[in-house]
């Protein structure tokens, strides 16, 4: 047993985080929780990018730059998502994803 931090450990952490986020995004009813789960998945990908920036075969700063861009896009996504949710709540009086079925009826 080697007690040392290596790349597969970080990948494993990121994989577990991604799976938890995926499960939450698939099963939860509250739309805000679905947004939170998507953030969790994005964070898992960020861990992977930074881990490869240090331990990858061609270690460079590109992974960290990509992480910064991912964060920016995630912030924009959350802002627009919350705005859509508030507008939807004002019109339909619900935040549950399975009640947002206007286009199905």
């Amino acid at each position: 047993m080697i007690f040392d931090v290596s790349l597969p450990l970080y990948l494993l952490i990121a994989l577990i985080l991604f799976c938890v986020g995926l499960y939450g995004a698939l099963t939860k009813r509250n739309a805000i929780v679905v947004l939170l789960s998507i953030e969790l998945m994005l964070n898992a990908v960020n861990i992977n990018l930074v881990a490869f920036a240090k331990y990858g075969l061609y270690a460079s700063l590109t992974g960290q730059v990509f992480t910064l861009f991912t964060m920016t896009v995630a912030a924009a996504e959350v802002a627009v998502g919350i705005a859509i949710l508030i507008s939807l709540y004002r019109n339909r009086d619900t935040v549950n994803v399975d009640e947002m079925d206007t286009m199905k009826r």
């Binding site: 924009a76 802002a79 627009v80 508030i86 507008s87």
Partner: peptide, 13 residues
């Protein structure tokens, strides 16, 4: 993108 998201979020909400 950030500018567009800012304006879009304000208009939506």
């Amino acid at each position: 993108l950030l500018l567009v998201a800012l304006v879009g979020a304000i208009i939506l909400a």
